[in-house]
Design a binder for these strands. Structure first.
Length: 214
DNA sequence: TTGCGGATGGACT
DNA sequence: GTCCATCCGCAAC
């Protein structure tokens, strides 16, 4: 698995391409003797100073400083008093773009994930940005860690599946909320906010039909 | 289906 | 000091 680790070049492509391309890749987290992994099935792109929803829109602060780091850095932040979220920093140093990993399909370490989350339903283990960090023991200690290292990294799976990728509006934000910067495997039962997803797909179908009539 | 409590840190006044 | 943030779970409706 380690042989297929994504290299630095991957993290230097455009943020939207990277966000889409990360669907189907495998997020790996090692902590001591524990190993966790899961197939990424939901991401969101945050485009730095061009994107009011991005933490880095207003410039560099102590909180977001790692977003300005080299592509291939992990940006882990704490929010709402109880959740961590994990991002892959994209682009050259100074370009504060990042991809938020919103959901994964659990593969390795499921037993520990259930223990960490305190629940048994596999569909609820990693189906949200705050859930997957809790399940995989990802916390503030990893903020600024290299995704080219051994504690946390992303690999190409040995068996590639055919993911049906669609893009939708992002979740849980108010600024610049209309752009389609969220990518999901629309056939996966492991995505976050399932009801939300149905609504968004229905809206898209409605829109494409009305456009077609014109 | 909606609404709110949780519990922390950074930006801003 | 206040506000609110890339959210989750659960209680009440």
């Amino acid at each position: 698995m380690t042989l297929n680790k994504l290299n630095e070049d991957f993290y230097l492509q455009s943020c939207l391409k990277a966000a889409k391309s990360l669907i189907g890749k495998v997020l790996v987290r090692k902590r001591g003797s524990k190993l966790y992994s899961g197939v990424i099935i939901e991401t969101e792109a945050y485009l730095g100073d061009k994107d009011p929803a991005s933490h880095s829109f207003k410039g560099r602060t102590r909180r977001n400083e790692h977003m300005f780091g080299r592509g291939g850095t992990a940006y882990v932040y704490f929010t709402y008093g109880n959740h961590y979220c994990v991002n892959a920093v994209i682009g050259k140093p100074g370009v504060a773009h990042a991809v938020l990993i919103r959901a994964v399909e659990p593969v390795t370490g499921i037993k520990s994930m259930k223990k960490n989350r305190g629940i048994d339903n596999i569909y609820e283990l990693c189906s949200g940005p705050g859930k997957l960090t809790q399940a995989m023991e990802i916390n503030g200690e990893l903020n600024g860690a290299s995704l080219l290292g051994n504690e946390i990294y992303i690999t190409i799976p040995e068996v590639l599946r055919n993911h049906k990728i669609i893009k939708t509006k992002r979740i849980g934000i108010t600024k610049n909320a209309d752009v389609l910067y969220r990518f999901i495997d629309s056939e996966s039962p492991f995505v976050s906010r399932v009801n939300y997803r149905r609504i968004l797909i229905a809206q898209q179908e409605k829109n494409s039909k009305s456009n077609y009539r014109k």
